[in-house]
């Protein structure tokens, strides 16, 4: 589904991703771990199409298409979803309006009919339940004044509504209390299908107790320095990163 080949990306003159290669197949869950500042969010944002990062070489192929040639909105319309590490506040636009716009744009791009506000609210009812969010949150401005945990839950709500093929969750577990973590993990598991895939960026092994990864990768200094199965996460939890990153 996703093939990243020797990807290099800069911010300004500074190279942040220094040759990343990664293959994700349908049905898989990949965890990406690694020290602060190693480039995890950068990788996630480059996949989503953030204009602030310049890809200097390498390629990303998604469903057989050149992902890097697509605008961020096209990528989303083709099923790529990024849950932001720092969800963005948009004062003045309600969550409901925002979600419905996104939902309808994606439908339109597939040649499907738009749904009206009433039908959309019906759809929202189930999705809200999934992430145990109150309906009043729909009528507030997008993320404005939301607590850290509420913002993260709101990301999962968006994911639930947009039903992506490739979901990248950038530290969605950070800042969540135990209950919220369980709710978010449950949401992600519910949305898992054999034809979609998930990339989890996380610092904590505990998330991986709830969402069991098929692969764990360690990103350090802009490179994937180690890959393994779910045991790797336990090993990292016990030993930290030094034993891998030394000399990397």
């Amino acid at each position: 589904m996703l093939t990243i080949d020797n990807l290099h990306a800069n911010v300004g003159d500074k190279e942040i991703l220094k040759g990343i290669s990664l293959t994700v197949n349908a049905g898989e869950v990949h965890a990406i771990m690694g020290p602060n500042g190693s480039g995890k969010s950068t990788l996630a944002q480059v996949i989503a199409g953030h204009p602030g990062y310049a890809v200097t070489s390498g390629s990303i192929t998604y469903d057989g298409t050149d992902l890097l040639a697509q605008q961020p909105e096209e990528r989303a319309q083709h099923g790529v979803f990024l849950a932001f590490q720092y969800p963005v506040e948009i004062p003045g636009v309600t969550n409901a309006y925002f979600l419905r716009s996104a939902y309808n744009e994606i439908r339109k791009s597939k040649g499907e009919e738009e749904v009206d506000p009433m039908d959309f609210l019906d759809l929202m009812e189930q999705k809200l339940k999934l992430v145990e969010m109150d309906e009043v949150m729909l009528h507030r401005s997008v993320n404005a004044g939301f607590s850290g945990g509420e913002k993260k839950r709101n990301e999962i709500l968006q994911m639930a509504v947009l039903a992506p093929k490739l979901a990248i969750l950038d530290e969605t577990d950070s800042g969540l209390d135990i209950d919220a973590l369980r709710i978010v993990a449950h949401g992600v598991n519910q949305l898992k299908r054999p034809d979609n895939a998930t990339i989890l960026v996380t610092h904590y092994q505990r998330l991986l107790n709830y969402i069991v990864p098929d692969f764990v990768h360690v990103l350090a200094g802009g490179r994937i320095v180690k890959s393994g199965g779910k045991e790797l996460a336990l090993e990292l939890e016990a030993k930290g990163y030094d034993w891998i990153t030394e000399g990397a």
Binding site: G49, E73, Q77, F81, V93, E105, I106, S109
Partner: peptide, 24 residues
């Protein structure tokens, strides 16, 4: 610009995202 990217990353096209932010 961050808000614009956030909207686009949800599939909202550039023009709609722009007018939505102006409206906001």
């Amino acid at each position: 610009q961050v808000g614009l990217f956030y909207m686009k990353s949800r599939g909202i096209n550039a023009e709609a995202a722009r007018t939505l932010l102006i409206y906001a």
